[in-house]
Structures are given as C-alpha cells and as structure tokens.
Design a protein around this nucleic acid. Structure first.
Lengths: 332, 332
DNA sequence: CTTGACAACTTGACCGGTTAAGTTAAACTT
DNA sequence: AAGTTTAACTTAACCGGTCAAGTTGTCAAG
C-alpha cells in the first residue's frame, strides 16, 4: 500500500521510532545528519503520515465540530461556517458538520468518542445538550446561545443593539414602531426576549407605548393586513427579529405594492450574506460574527487565556436603504 | 478514562474479541446468551466505541470531504452542503469541509491520508486536482465540473437549460436579449461556455443576432450605461450567468430607478437560497442540486451500480417575478 | 466407540503511529 | 583512570479496536 515509517526505517537502516522522532522534530533525539537522511528519504518515497494512525496514537483528531440544528439550518449558518473554516485552517484544523437530528442521547456521543477535539454549538440549541456537555466535560463553546449550565458561551449584547436600532428609528421621527418576529420559531431564544424587552423599554423611554401588533405570526397575513390599512393606522417602522423573516416580509409587502422605505422603514437583526445581495439592502443590526467565531475557535484550541464567564459581544447598526425619515402625514 | 471493550470483557468474564464480535453482531460467533450479557453490560457501563481506534482498525473513517475553493466560497455552496449532510446522515457518515487553499500539492494529500473515505469536489476546481485524483485513485466525484481526467463527474445540461430560458424570453416577445456574466471570474467554467454558446445558437435560430453587449465586466458600470440609454437602445431582456451576479446587477439597476421586470426582464441560472428570499424573486433556470448531490454521495458510498461516464442532469425553468412580456414600444 | 462437524469461544497478530524506558559509546569530569 | 553525563539511538509497550487462525466441548453420524 502506501509508505509507512517502517518502510522509511528499513530503507535508511534505523528503527521506525528514529524515523518518528526525526519527522516530528523532537530535538536532541536524532543527530542532524540522520534526520536529514530520514527526511530526504521520506520525501523521496512520497511518505504521508497515516492520518488515522496518527490521530489514534496522539489521541487528537485535529478536527473541530460544528453542531447545529437540522441540515437545512446550516444554510443560515453559512457565514459562521465559512469563518470557522478559515480560522481553523490557520491552526491546521478542519471542520466537521454535525447536524443535531433527533434526541440528544441518540447522537451526542459523537462529541465524546474522539472524532472531534472540540465543538462549537450554535443556534438552535438541542434540548439537553448544554447539560450533556457540562456533565461529560466535552470541550465546547456555545455560540450565540445562553445556558445556565457550566459551559463556555459567547453571545451578543442584544439590548445595546436594540437601543441603537431604536435610537435610529426614533431619530428619524418614527413613533409607531412595531417589533416583528415569529414567536413559534424564535420565542425561546434569548435574543428574542432581550430584543423584545429592550424594544419595549426604548418605547417607554421615548414616552411611547409598544405597538399593539408587536408579535406577528406569518409574513403573508401581516403584509395583507398592513397593505389594507390606511397609512395613519399602521406602523411607520418595524424592528424585525432577524434578516430571514424580514426578507420574507419585505417580499410579501412588495407584492402588495408596499415598498421599503417609502411605506415602511425596516430594521432587522443580522447583516449577513443575504443582505449583501439584497435590494434594497436592509438597514441592520450587525453582529461581529468574525469576533465570535474567533473567540470560539481560539478558546477550543488555545484553552489558556480564556475568559471564564459568558462573553458578550457588541453589535453595530448599519444604516442602508430600508430606513427613511417618518413621512410627516402619518406621524404623531 | 472511558470504557473500552477490555473493561467490558473483564466484567463479563470473556475475551475482548468476544465483546467485539457481540457488539458487531457477527452472527454465529457468540451465543445469544453471552451476547445479551455483553450488550447489557456494555450499555450499563456506558460504553461508546472509540471512534479513532475503530476507524484505525477498520481503515474507514465514515467521513466524506467536500472540497471547494476558499472558505468564503462556501457560502455559495451552502445548499450543496446542506443536501450532502442530509444524505450522508442517512448513511451514518459525516461531512468534513476541505477548503482548497494554495497549490494542490500543498493540501491534496489530505484526500489520501485516511481522514476521509472519499470526497466531492465542487466549483471552483483547483488547478491540477482532477489529475491528482486520477493518478492517486482518490475516491472522488466532481460536482458541477467537467474534466478530461478519468474521474467520475456530474454536471448539468446547460444547453438545454439555456434553450428553456431563451424560449421563455422569446415567447414573451423579447428580441433584444443579452447574455450577462463576468468573464474574468466565470470565463473558464464549462457552464459559462455552454450557456453562452447555447444563447448564441438560440438567437440565431430565432433569426436574431447576439446582442452586442453580451459580456459585461461589472454590474455598476453596466447598470449606469443601461439606465442612461433610451429604452429603444438597450436590451429588453437579460440572461444572467448566475444568481449572484444577477442580484448585484438588479440592485445596481434598482438604485438607478430601473425596476424588474418593468424595465428589463431577467432570467438567471441557479434557484438557490438567495432567490428563495429575494424580492422580486427571479425567474431562474433551476438545477436539481438534490439529484446531483445524491448521485455523488451514492456513488462514493455505494460504488457498485455507478454509471461509468460523466453524468448530465437536466435543468428546469422556474418562472417567477422578473420576466414579463416585452413592452410593445421598444420591441422589434 | 470413533470421527467429523459445528458452535462458542480464546489466542495472537495487526493497523501505523507515539512515547517511555532502556542501551551503548563517546565526551566530559575530577 | 574511574565515574558521570549525554547524544543518539533501539527495544518494548501502548492506543482500542478488528480479524484470521486456533482451541475447546458437544452433538450427530457412521
């Protein structure tokens, strides 16, 4: 089959252990002359270390896993994936995708049977996975998730991000501002709660009351009702829980002749790939995904200078094309 | 540390090999009674096979790789990734992402050192990888790529797809139809050549000559020139090489007051995630990515009933919102 | 009563590395 | 010159499974 260190050893006339030492640069174990002979022989024989044997012996696979919901959820995480791959490549590691299908106890063993050296868990958090990780001391970091379990975690400062978005909308003169999300899908995620709470707080700070239709089931019915109401009887601005839902809503509104930002100002959370291609590009609260991913990877691989508690990353407001001053006719 | 078959063997009072046989359901090697005892002991001790040891001994990792360009390219491949993960999960395999960074000989050894059982290579094809794969008999399938090397490959019937799109546009009365792509980025890919050739053929079949501005460098300059010309002096329809470029163009046009499909009908290739969220949703030539991915995975894992030569998959036209009848004023 | 077949194990080797613990000879002390 | 250190190796064990080749004991056939 392929060349092993044994073959090299025979060719050079040393033991296979000497070859191992030489190739791994263990200083002071092999003479420079022998090392040189070994290395050049290895090169000339086209030796490639057997990855399976090596990870077996070293008890490390040089692979990091990404745990996420169903396979399809992964499309939404594509920015995270690409950033992770990039960061891992710098450290000579690779990324294994681990979809969380079914009950945790049916697949979570993958996290501790040696196939990965550690993992990043991202939204949605499979039920019970955080306690599983804590119980079995799986090297893991929760990304954009929160948990009471003793697991490293990074998330975003959604309260501050929400304030930025609300200040922007209020500054543009908007008064009837609603919060838009699909409660069934996102109701459980911390970010929805924090965004919604911060929204309510910002409204009351401004002397306004949270708009009635703050939680919306689906884009189509909402768009229909929105389009049928007179301009004075509907929100002039919306804060959307995420980009995905916001795009669906924008399309539904578009089809009914309502255009952004003419008929409605819209700010969403996430300024990802979709938005980079969208037209009009949405004003968005942007997460520093790069910083988050770097933190996760460095924490998993470095393990040393890690901040102990949960890490909170800042958010930024990116003003693009879907927010405009509140039209005077419908203000107040 | 963790429980091994040796521990189970000692507890039950048999050899570790007996445990191995019992747990692997090798029929006729272990008595049903013993097997039962072994399995229940294993279960009760919380035994999990060591994945590294197992893949070392079995010479299989149960991991399939996906080779693609730079980490960022992966965002465009997110649909493929999600389909692959899904299909692989059914066969108890996992997906490792292998970005193709730098010269092939610097990283291609990853494809044959045992970390993966096989791989799918997708666009863009790293230079020389096809011959590397052929020379070293790496189990691989090229997805949406063509190569003269002796490597299994799946691609799409772009000529037929182009005909569908052109028939649609011609049927709507369009006569001044241009082909839009960025030659620098996509010029080398087979699909660009085929689409362009098929476009020219369709035009001449219809008694028309290919529109002058058939190859465009960048969306912004094109949109500017388009917007500045009178309606009678510009294309009424565009066939875009891909969704990504088409979205950029649509946005650039939008900003200049040109709206789809009022001022221009646009058909693009690919009906992926972007399009699912876009507004207006683009009329697109859709690839059966699911079929392609299934073919790749099945071929890698099954290896038996494989079609020998290159496989050509059909394309479909999906009529959405960016194509409309040619306005009478500017026709002819 | 012997022989053969078969079920139900056990023994031993192996996968290809890594690592700890010798061994040997030269160099360096004192 | 004897003892100690050290460089440069080798030997042996191990990682945790898998798999081929024995070794029993039991039962049936001849």
């Amino acid at each position: 089959m392929s060349v092993t260190i044994q073959h090299i050893a025979e060719r050079v006339g040393v033991s296979k252990q000497a070859v191992s030492y030489a190739l791994n640069n263990k200083s002071g174990q092999v003479s420079p002359a022998t090392r040189k002979r070994i290395i050049s022989t290895a090169h000339q024989m086209g030796y490639r270390p057997n990855w399976r044997a090596r990870s077996f012996a070293r008890k490390r696979s040089q692979i990091v896993g990404l745990v996420y919901g169903r396979p399809a959820d992964y499309v939404e995480q594509s920015d995270v994936v690409s950033l992770m791959v990039e960061r891992l490549a710098e450290a000579d590691h690779e990324l294994l995708l681990i979809p969380a299908m079914g009950p945790v106890d049916q697949w979570a063993h993958k996290l501790r049977d040696g196939r990965i050296d550690g993992c990043v868990v991202t939204h949605p958090l499979p039920e019970g996975l955080d306690t599983f990780i804590a119980e079995h001391s799986v090297p893991a970091v929760l990304l954009n998730l929160r948990s009471d379990a003793d697991v490293p975690q990074v998330s975003y400062d959604d309260r501050r991000g929400t304030r930025l978005a609300m200040d922007h909308l209020l500054g543009l003169g908007h008064r009837r501002i609603a919060y838009y999300c699909k409660p069934k899908e996102h109701g459980l995620h911390y970010s929805n709660l924090e965004r919604q709470q911060a929204y309510v707080a910002a409204m009351s700070n401004a002397g306004l009351s949270a708009h009635a239709a703050s939680v919306i089931e689906e884009p189509e019915p909402y768009a229909a009702s929105f389009a049928s109401r007179p301009a004075g009887d509907r929100p002039t601005a919306l804060l959307a829980y995420n980009d995905h839902d916001a795009f669906y809503l924008a399309r539904a509104l578009n089809r009914r002749g309502c255009h952004l930002p003419r008929d409605l100002s819209l700010v969403c959370f996430n300024d990802g790939t979709f938005n980079r291609l969208a037209s009009p590009r949405m004003t968005a609260v942007s997460m520093s995904e790069r910083a988050a991913v770097h933190y996760c990877v460095d924490r998993l691989l470095g393990a040393s200078d890690a901040v102990p508690g949960p890490v909170l990353l800042p958010q930024e407001l990116k003003v693009y094309q879907t927010t405009a001053p509140c039209p005077p006719v419908s203000s107040g």
